[in-house]
Simulated scan of single mutants.
Amino acid sequence: MNSLTVPCFFLFFLFLSVAAQDIAVPVLDSDGDELQADQKYTVTHVTQVAGTKGGLSLEYSGPRCPAYVTAEARGVIGIPMIFHPVNCDEGPIYESATVYIKFTYNRVCTEVSAVWKVDDYVDESTGLYFLIAGGTIGDKRSQLKIVKSLKGDEGYSFVSCGLSECTSIFEYSDKNLTRLALGNDEDAASIVFHKYLLTSTSSIM
């Protein structure tokens, strides 16, 4: 291990020594294993069995950038993602811990990074702040958290806490495109994480 690398478990024990009353709980994937900072994952929706959404990807909404973080159609895996916890490079991802999320590639707007961020500007037609590519590790607009599903099911939800207050992330559909945006807890998307395997294809059953 690189001497400059700060493992997450070290920060976890440091956190406990400062605030023993708070117990850090690891995020679990679909196999019941702890989500790891050095692995690739895809997601599916808790409600996918009922029929509508697939994984997450990047798409245009108009003729050019930005590239929006979008939900794919049912059966499509989407783009694998990697989680980067704040101040550590490896180890488990914990619930409500600040992370940066990066897709493994960006073929839509290649001139910007594949790190997620909350757009700098509110969308005039919807009044919403959407999640787009082009973020930076260390930028508050790229800071997100993974929490237990805000709908009370067995999945998880994304929350943005890099601005003035924590805001849940939901899926807004229009123009045959479903984009991730800041919204209300009752509308928050519920997702499940899956290890991305080299044998994965572009579709899921």
Rank of each mutant, 00 (worst) to 15 (best):
S3E: 07
C88P: 10
L163P: 00
L35W: 08
I23W: 08
E90D: 14
Y196A: 03
I82V: 15
Y94R: 12
A67K: 03
T110P: 14
I93T: 07
T104N: 11
L182H: 12
L150N: 04
R64G: 14
E95Y: 13
L56R: 05
A71Q: 11
V43F: 08
Q39K: 09
S30G: 00
L58V: 02
S202R: 13
R74Q: 08
F15D: 15
K148E: 04
I93H: 08
Y129I: 00
S57V: 01
F170L: 10
T104P: 00
V122T: 13
G138T: 04
P92T: 05
G155H: 12
I93V: 15
Y129T: 01
K140F: 01
E34Q: 14
I82A: 11
E154F: 14
S61C: 03
L197M: 08
F130P: 07
E111S: 09
S164K: 01
D174R: 06
F12H: 15
S200D: 15
L56Y: 13
I137D: 12
C88T: 02
S168R: 05
Q143D: 11
L197P: 01
E34M: 06
F9D: 09
S96N: 15
V86N: 11
D38H: 02
L4K: 07
T98V: 14
N106D: 09
C166H: 04
V43W: 12
A19P: 02
D33V: 01
I101V: 15
K195P: 07
E111C: 00
S157P: 00
S113E: 06
F193N: 02
F170D: 12
F193P: 02
T167P: 01
T126Y: 13
L144H: 10
Y60C: 00
E171T: 05
R64T: 10
G62D: 13
D139M: 04
F193Q: 00
E111N: 08
M81L: 10
S113N: 06
G75W: 02
A50Y: 13
Q39V: 01
V112Q: 07
V43L: 11
V18T: 08
M81K: 12
E95W: 03
D185M: 12
T47H: 12
Q21Y: 04
V99R: 03
H194L: 01
A114W: 02
P63C: 12
F12C: 14
A19R: 14
C166T: 04
G54F: 01
T70E: 03
I191A: 10
I169M: 12
N106E: 11
T201Q: 04
E72K: 13
S142E: 05
D187F: 07
K145H: 02
T201F: 00
Y156L: 05
M1Y: 10
K175T: 10
T167E: 11
C166S: 08
E72S: 11
L128E: 12
G54V: 03
K117C: 12
D153I: 10
S30T: 04
Q36R: 14
A114Q: 06
V159R: 15
V115A: 05
E171I: 04
P63V: 09
G138M: 03
G162I: 00
